[in-house]
Design a protein around this nucleic acid. Structure first.
Lengths: 197, 197
DNA sequence: GTCTATAATTCGATAGAC
DNA sequence: GTCTATCGAATTATAGAC
């Protein structure tokens, strides 16, 4: 109970490094992210960053952990004041729609990271995959309110497919309108799913 | 008319390099592909490869050009003996479905390459994007047989979104069944699109 | 905790022998 | 056309001063 003291509670430098790394990995990819890049963005020296994270993989793990924590918190807050199944799931679609600009510029943070790690860092991709499973299980739980378990799982998967496909296509064409158009289609689809209960 | 002679017609070494590069880029990503990798897979020396391709970007361009040519040829053959709109478009879905194993292992060749290049090689991504536009325009032309131009374009985009989303999700979960399930849903969707004419 | 200095690789690219 | 040799730059990672 008295183990952590002083800066171990906050660790502002460490958190700043993680933030800068997350941003750079999102914008340029993990392979194109070096200690030198993060040192520049944080105004720290390279050696300092390497003191906090002995290897690039360790830093990547910290970034993934922070993203997972963020998603957990987001889904928790979404679960609090949920209305109908439509209203709940629509929040997910609204989030995608609201991020159209970033999605078209840099792709989906989860999708692009997992896609890259799936090629040459399969071990760490297994950790990053948890982000997807969190969304999938949350969506499945919402659909389970009005659908059989197996159908609910299929609908959750289908929505994730549409969201990821929309993000990828928007990123490739650098066009946020693709996200907007596909978000509208997702809402139509959701209406039919909820109506056909 | 008499400009090309000897090995300039075939260029087996050059083509072998392109094939090895395409394979390695697909499996490991462009950033993780080096001259040394390709030299090993082709049993050539690094200097030889660099004689044929002065820079990595030049090699990447050759790989993209070959992929574009392959898609052009594929779509041309698909256009020959096309039946109904459903039968035509279903060929696209069948192609996705038949490649479920590779898609789940390495992702979609177009999608993952464009996704990576979109982050730190935007200029070359503009060339790679042509692959998407070829499929999109071909699908749009098929849907145009039974739908207004604007609607046809929307349906083509929607199908590409589903196919790319399915590939990404299957890659992330390393599960070809996701491709099979989503292919079935694409066929259902296509039936409704063609029926609601 | 922060920083400098440097080791140890690896990579892209060039020059030149054969 | 093919290959050897090498340069210069960038990278991860380590050792040690402050």
């Amino acid at each position: 109970m008295k183990s952590e003291h002083k800066q171990s509670v906050k660790q502002p430098t460490r958190l700043g490094i993680i933030d800068a790394a997350q941003s750079h990995i999102y914008h340029k990819g993990f392979g194109a992210t070096s200690y030198a890049n993060i040192a520049q963005e944080t105004n720290l020296r390279k050696g300092n960053i390497q003191y906090h994270f002995k290897s690039k993989d360790e830093l990547l793990q910290a970034v993934i952990d922070q993203q997972i924590a963020g998603i957990r918190q987001q889904l928790e807050s979404w679960s609090l004041d949920c209305g109908t199944t439509y209203d709940c799931v629509e929040r997910f679609i609204a989030m995608v729609d609201a991020n159209a600009d970033n999605l078209s510029r840099y792709g989906c943070p989860m999708g692009t990271l997992n896609s890259e790690l799936g090629k040459d860092h399969r071990e760490q991709q297994h950790q990053a995959k948890v982000m997807f499973d969190l969304y999938l299980r949350w969506l499945e739980a919402r659909f389970s309110a009005i659908l059989p378990r197996k159908t609910a799982r299929a609908r959750a998967e289908q929505l994730m497919v549409m969201a990821q496909g929309a993000s990828l296509m928007a990123h490739i064409h650098e066009d946020p309108e693709i996200v907007h158009r596909q978000s509208a289609l997702m809402r139509e689809w959701l209406s039919e799913v909820c109506a056909a209960r």
